[in-house]
């Protein structure tokens, strides 16, 4: 029995070495760090980067930092220790991530930031973000149209601890506050998730049965609000959101979610990998460090063109 275990261990070790040898023969590893792999947005982002990097002949290492700056720091340390070729990261915090990125760059590893920026210029190879302001404005404009420029509405923000969410909310109000007949009678933060979205909507609907619309900071919150409205038998309330996941597309096709803006998660990831590859091969940095990508407005007419945050 003992011999068997030893044999198995030996085999396992051998296969590990074999794996390492194989890795050495490729173009090296690109590390991809995203926030969380359970959220369809981040999953699509990671998948897009992974696919592109592997197509270019790199090995990939996909890990999540769960929006935890300390964990992100450890991931960076590991990546530097492993001597990866490049890092693609959707960072945990715009200010607290600067040091980690700097550390990697000092070690000679190019870092491409996707989705979230850091506050300092000149460290990262490239910083690719979504135009959350434009996406928010587009959605808000359609919301105004659907509401007929008047009536009580509710804003469910995703997570005000996240900069992108704050930007979206600002964009909403830039548009909505121009219409004096549209009144925001409740505003609640729903932690960007389905269940808090549903439960907040349950309570708000009880306090204010006369609402006509709900504008949501991200997809899961919008779907949570829809679940609540459905249970209450309210088909008359207009719901819009931002994100663009497959679940939202299904909801749009079913006529429940009226509009959303798709953030080009995969496109950003692909561009990030390409920039790192270009730098590794030719030593060329992109012309502009900060590039914003447009959010694509989605309603019933074009919902079937979206799959896994890719617009075709």
């Amino acid at each position: 029995m003992k011999k068997l275990t030893v044999l198995a261990l030996a085999a396992a070790t051998a296969s590990c070495f074999a794996f390492n040898a194989q890795a050495a023969s490729s173009k090296g590893t690109i590390a991809i760090f995203v926030n969380a792999l359970d959220n369809p947005y981040y999953a699509a982002e990671a998948a897009g980067a992974k696919r592109q990097a592997e197509a270019m002949g790199y090995d990939t290492l996909v890990l999540a930092h769960d929006e935890d700056v300390k964990k992100q720091n450890e991931l960076f340390d590991n990546a530097i220790g492993q001597k990866v070729k490049g890092i693609i990261v959707d960072c945990a915090d715009s200010t607290a991530s600067v040091a980690a990125v700097q550390k990697a760059v000092d070690a000679g590893i190019p870092v491409a930031l996707i989705n979230r920026e850091i506050v300092k210029d000149g460290i990262a190879l490239v910083q690719l973000t979504h135009n959350n302001f434009q996406a928010g404005s587009d959605v808000a404009n359609r919301f105004v149209e659907l509401m007929g420029e008047k009536g009580d509405y509710v804003e469910l923000t995703c997570s005000l601890a996240d900069n992108n969410c704050v930007t979206r909310s600002k964009a909403f109000h830039q548009v909505l506050d121009q219409y004096p007949d549209m009144k925001m009678i409740a505003r609640q933060d729903c932690k960007g998730a389905l269940l808090p979205g549903k439960q907040a909507m349950d309570s708000i609907l009880q306090a204010n049965p006369n609402i006509k619309g709900v504008i949501c900071g991200n997809g899961p919150v919008a779907l949570g609000a829809i679940a609540s409205l459905k249970n209450a038998g309210r088909n008359d309330v207009v719901v819009v959101g931002i994100d663009g996941s497959n679940d939202e597309m299904a909801s749009i096709k079913a006529g429940e979610l009226k509009a959303t803006a798709m953030l080009q998660a995969q496109e950003l990831a692909v561009q990030g990998v390409k920039a790192v590859d270009e730098y590794l091969n030719n030593g060329k940095k992109p012309e502009k460090e900060r590039v914003m990508h447009k959010g694509i407005f989605i309603d019933k007419t074009n919902a079937d063109r979206v799959k896994d945050f890719l617009y075709q």
């Binding site: 998730a193 389905l194 269940l195 549903k198 679940a227 679940d247």
Partner: peptide, 13 residues
């Protein structure tokens, strides 16, 4: 109950 109320199973629920 939660999966039923949301008509969705979400792994982080």
């Amino acid at each position: 109950i939660l999966a039923s109320q949301l008509l969705t199973s979400h792994p982080m629920t």
